[in-house]
Simulated assay, not measured.
Amino acid sequence: MTTQTPVRPQTRAGREEPQRKKGVRLAGAFYLMVLPAFVLFFVFHTIPVIQGVYYSFTDSPGYGPADFVGLRNYIALFTDPRVLHAYWFTFLIAAVATILVNIVALAIAIGLNGRIKFKNGLRGIYFIPNVLAILVVGYIFNYLFSNSLPALAEKLGIDALSTSLLTKASTAWIAIVILAVWQSAAFNIIIYLAGLQTVPTEMYEAANLDGASAWRQFRSITFPMIAGFFTINMVLSLKGFLQIFDHIVALTGGGPGTDTESVALLIYKGGFQGGEYGYQSANSVIFFIVIVGFSIVQLRVLRRREVEV
């Protein structure tokens, strides 16, 4: 008579052990996939940032030996009229362009979201500026502002536009804003279109039955429902315009004189062309703090607005 060995029921710990080993293997695979990106980011981003912070405490011209000067560069920044003007000009461009680009993008997005013909084709056309090189487009706009527009204005008898907008500081900033808004509106339009797709059509139908006007529908339905998308566009727009660089290089090069220099352009000119590597490194650190500060404050204020809505 043969005796059978009784099969012991598998305990809970026994069942979890293979799953735990499988989880460890998966975690290891994830780390291996992330590691190359982390190494590249650390080598080409983190290390240069740390080096830049170090050079901001030196008088380095960008080559050769450098002496440690402590906070001298940071103190000098707050009394440098060229730096202060660059910050003021950058804030002006960023504020005006951020407001205009969101107004234009939201208006176009609402129009494209309506019942119009060739809607998909128009969406593609409006997105074209976002994929074009800013420098190339900037030189085209330079020609338009310097040649085509004055020639057209002269024929029409408009004396105010008969000379190039780029020759005077009082009008050059307007040309920069026009180019910046034209180029950046495409991305904002896509974000707003995505937001408008989340608004239920039933709400508009109910509003129409109640006799609500188009403006009332926008103020009470559309804008509150896309408030999160508005926050995203405002934060990204302001951050991008604070770093404006290519537009100015193509249109004015910072001129006339230094009247249209942005902070980014000043850092480039002074750091790489003017022998002020350490000084402009300090400027870069301050500028980084300013951008982060603006983004945090803007995000908190707009998110509070979302809650109130």
Rank of each mutant, 00 (worst) to 15 (best):
L265T: 01
V69F: 00
I158F: 00
P65M: 09
I178C: 02
R20A: 13
A250W: 04
I99K: 00
A212K: 04
G211R: 04
G23Y: 03
R12L: 13
T2K: 15
R304Y: 12
E261F: 12
A172D: 01
G254Y: 11
V101Q: 03
F230V: 15
A207C: 00
N147E: 12
S281C: 13
D159V: 03
L112K: 04
V96Q: 02
I176T: 07
A37D: 05
L112C: 05
R303Y: 07
D67E: 05
Y143E: 10
E202S: 15
N233M: 10
S262G: 07
F68K: 02
G254Q: 12
N208A: 12
L71M: 12
G62K: 13
K155V: 03
L179D: 00
G195P: 02
E308K: 14
V263G: 00
V39A: 06
T201R: 13
K117P: 01
A133H: 04
V104P: 01
F229S: 12
E205L: 04
G195M: 10
A29F: 14
A206E: 01
L149M: 07
N188G: 11
A282S: 09
R303N: 10
L132P: 01
I110K: 06
T252K: 06
R20S: 10
R12P: 01
V34F: 07
P9S: 14
P36L: 11
R216H: 09
P200K: 13
I116Q: 05
Q51L: 15
L251K: 03
T201E: 12
Q4H: 11
V307C: 10
A169C: 07
V43W: 08
I248T: 00
G23I: 07
A282I: 06
L32A: 15
L196G: 01
